[in-house]
Design a protein around this nucleic acid. Structure first.
Lengths: 190, 190
DNA sequence: TATTATAGTGAACGACCGTTCACTTGTCAA
DNA sequence: TTGACAAGTGAACGGTCGTTCACTATAATA
């Protein structure tokens, strides 16, 4: 049996069950009757780098889940570092979230960041506990209201800049709290 | 031990190992010495709906991985159906990809869709084999070039509309191929 | 104080785990 | 034609799996 068929079947199993099948299950999936056949196939998969064994000897997926074939740029053709990274981390969860315990999701309303490509209805992954740098997009609490803005620290004051000409910069007088930094933006159409 | 501590530890284990720990491993993680303690804890987790057993009796995560606490709208407060869905599917992979075998990832270059919030450097998930509807964003191959545009079918012709005033609509004469439909957009800042 | 949950221990169970070994079959090259 | 090799079978192994049972300790309640 060809390695592509095997990885494809593993992929769809993992996508359905969120775990890798046992050897016995792989027998059923691939159509073998002997677990030894699986043993050798897994050896191949490890050699190819599709799966690996973790510290406890359990099988875990590795390079299997570029479900997703990265085709490269629309106009150019070569994969960029980000795609390599995604190929290796292989899951959007890992790609989009660095600190799961410090991250949460917000749905955006309002158009104050529309020129930064953040539209109403988009989801943003926000991570807290990080020091914002100039140019970061932050979720700020100003006088009790939450708002999404560019962060800009000048000599003695902090400026919150919208990405929309119709809005004005906010220079908070008191009570500014940076809730978190936007680390990624997600939009779903269908 | 409190259920929140347990789910937190499970979460971080799953995020690191991409699988749930065995009962013996949970003993180590939670600090118990008897697997029976784990047995009862898992019973609780099932009752709460955090985990479930799949068709083969194996433990799989269910509602555990709102790693990510959805806080609701920035301005409003109630979670929308999309967030509920994300909470239940619990993984960005499932949220963003419907058909893993028919999806791939493209890095966007060019500014032709910038007013739709798709900027150069963004990643788009493209699904093929679907019939585009008016208003869908599609990847089209026109005379050998790949391009990202709004799809508009009129009575007798197809129009590809950019989301950028500086660009002109394309009315393909021959050789138009719809490569796929953009189902989601991803942008990562850090 | 006596009673009753609640939470954890520890040993034992049968089933399944991944692995190994010996064997068969088919294919391709020398 | 023979030898080597790849691919699959089937049985057996020790270990780990989830589960169950009987027991203890602590805390809450009557």
């Amino acid at each position: 049996m060809k390695i592509e068929q095997i990885t494809a079947k593993l992929r769809s199993f993992y996508f359905k069950n969120r775990r890798l099948p046992s050897y016995r299950e792989m027998c059923e999936i691939f159509g073998f009757t002997s677990k030894n056949s699986i043993f050798r196939i897994v050896k191949k998969l490890k050699a190819y780098g599709f799966v690996e064994k973790d510290s406890d000897g359990k099988l875990i997926p590795k390079r299997l889940f570029s479900f997703i074939n990265v085709l490269g740029n629309i106009q150019a053709g070569t994969p960029t570092p980000a795609e390599q990274e995604l190929l290796e981390t292989m899951s959007f969860d890992h790609f989009l979230i660095n600190r799961p315990d410090k991250s949460y999701l917000l749905r955006v309303s309002g158009e104050s960041m529309i020129e930064a490509g953040i539209h109403p209805g988009d989801l943003v992954v926000v991570e807290d506990g990080k020091l914002p740098k100039n140019g970061d997009i932050v979720v700020a609490e100003v006088d009790g209201d939450y708002t999404l803005k560019y962060f800009h620290k000048e000599k003695d004051r902090i400026k919150l800049m919208p990405a929309n000409k119709k809005f004005s910069p906010i220079i908070p007088s008191e009570r500014l709290r940076i809730v978190g930094i936007v680390v990624s933006v997600i939009r779903k159409y269908h």
